[in-house]
Structure formats: C-alpha cells, structure tokens
Design a protein around this nucleic acid. Sequence first.
DNA 1: CCAGCCCCCTGTCGGC
DNA 2: TGCCGACAGGGGGCTG
Length: 285
Amino acid sequence: MAQLASSDGLTRGIMPELPEVETVVRGLRKDVVGRTFRAMPVITPGQIVTPSSDAFAARLTGQCVETLWRRGKYVIFDLSSDALLVHLKMTGRLYVSHKWQAEGADKYVRFVFELDNRHKLIFSDLRKLGRLHLVSRADDVVGALGPEPLSDDFTLDVFRSLMAQRRGTIKPLLLNQRFIAGIGNIYADEALWLAKVDPRRKSDSLKLDEVDRLYHAIREVLLEGIRHEGASIDWYRKPDGTTGEQQDHFSAYGREDEPCPRCEATISKIRLGQRGTHFCPACQS
DNA sequence: CCAGCCCCCTGTCGGC
DNA sequence: TGCCGACAGGGGGCTG
C-alpha cells in the first residue's frame, strides 16, 4: 500500500462514493467513538451548511461521539444531542492527526476538531466542495435519500419496483441519490459494464433479466469496492493515509481506448448527463 | 418526472 | 514557453 507522497497534486477523476465513504468510517471509528469535541481552531465558513459558522463550534464543543456511521455518501457522527454530517464531495479527506499527516504537512486543512485525548480530527479538502451539517436529527439531511443498496431491505423486488416507476436514461438514474444512495460515476459505469447494459438505455426499456443483472451488479461492484477499501485514482485516501486498491480492478471506468476485459472490443468514453461515461459498445447493449 | 444547464472550487492537462 | 479553456464530478438550484 503506497504512502501518500508529499507532492501529490493530481486531481483527475476523484471520487468518494459509497465504498470509499464506508472505508473512511471503518477506519475512523475506533479513534472517534467515545471522544468529546473540544476547540475548533480552524474553520472554513463557506463549507458549513448549518448552523451559521459563528454558532457551529460552540454548538459542537462538549458533545461526545456516540456512533459513527454512513448513509449514502455522508459520514455521520451521532453526538450527545446532535448529528454532525460530513459530505466529502470530490476531494474531502477525514483523518486523525496522529495516524497520518505530520502537523502542517497538509496544505488543504479546512477544519480541525480537537478531541479530548489531545488528538485532532482533520477535515482536508483541496477544492472546498465538501459540506458540513450540524443538525438535531441526521434525517434532516439524509431523510430523502434512496435506499442503501447493500442493506438487507434492498431486495431484488424492491429494485424491480423502483425501476418500474422510472423512465429516465439508466446511468443518470443510477447517479440520482434519491433513487439509490451512494452510487457515483465510477461505480455506475462499473455496474452497467458488469450487467452488460448500455448506459444510454432508457430505464423502462430494460428487460426483466437486465434489471436483475443490474441489481446484482450494483451490489457486487460496491462490495468489491469495499473489499478493496475504495478506489484511489489519486485524491481519495483511507484515514491512515494509504491508498485503496479498487482502482486496479476497474473494467470500464478510466479505460477508454483499452480492450474490454470481457470481449476485447475497445472501451468508449462519451459524455452522458454532463459526466464522463465509459462502456463497451460491443458487449453492453 | 426528466433533461439540460450553471455554479461551486482547485489543479492538471492539452492545444495553440 | 505561456496562456486559456476543458475537464475532473457530487450535488443544489433553476428552467423548460
């Protein structure tokens, strides 16, 4: 596992999606659960959605982290009386200072949360697209998300019934967090490749066996991503600073002009819904 | 409901 | 060599 180089500057194709966020949560849990937030010496006001940036630190300070979990792409800290939700967007990173970066080594630190054991929880974010919410109930932020694709509740029947209500293009639909939570550009392309479904298809044109293949493919690519601890094309890192491995297992994403691993035809890259989209024009139909 | 567009941000890369 | 636009892509907002 490669250590993060001090000069990493690449920003092409980032990602925190469900497997990456899940890996962050698993890596952080034992360092933050049971800890109490103390001072916040660094705050980037523009990244706080609620409450006002003036009130944020005061309201957070003194609250203890009871559980740390994930919903869709949100990291959720359940606190004594509130919930802190963090969305990493493209380049956000969460890590505990003693585990990774030496003090001052990270140019993109946007938040520092001092903990009651003298460690610091760091939120770093090159592009400042990440967002923080401090709310009384997590559902205020994540209540409208679609189902968790890896939960026991997300059955084949549930997916069939959700699909039956939709008529849009299949790939943008997979990216819609109100349809299913947690799928981003990478795993959408990978799931459609695995299911042999063309990303340009209308969702209501999928035959039953294609819907079934897509259901299993979604779960398989997400589970594989978690198994490999996320994809580190460049920016995403696990909380200990090392890279995930999933980027070495892509079949379609980022492989334009390379042979399809299944049929040897050349992988295409197009734009679909303003997103780069990778697929095999021969075996995805 | 759905598609398309802009915006938020910063850094890299390719074209000229 | 330097400048500039395109691109990376999650999500909110807006329009048609």
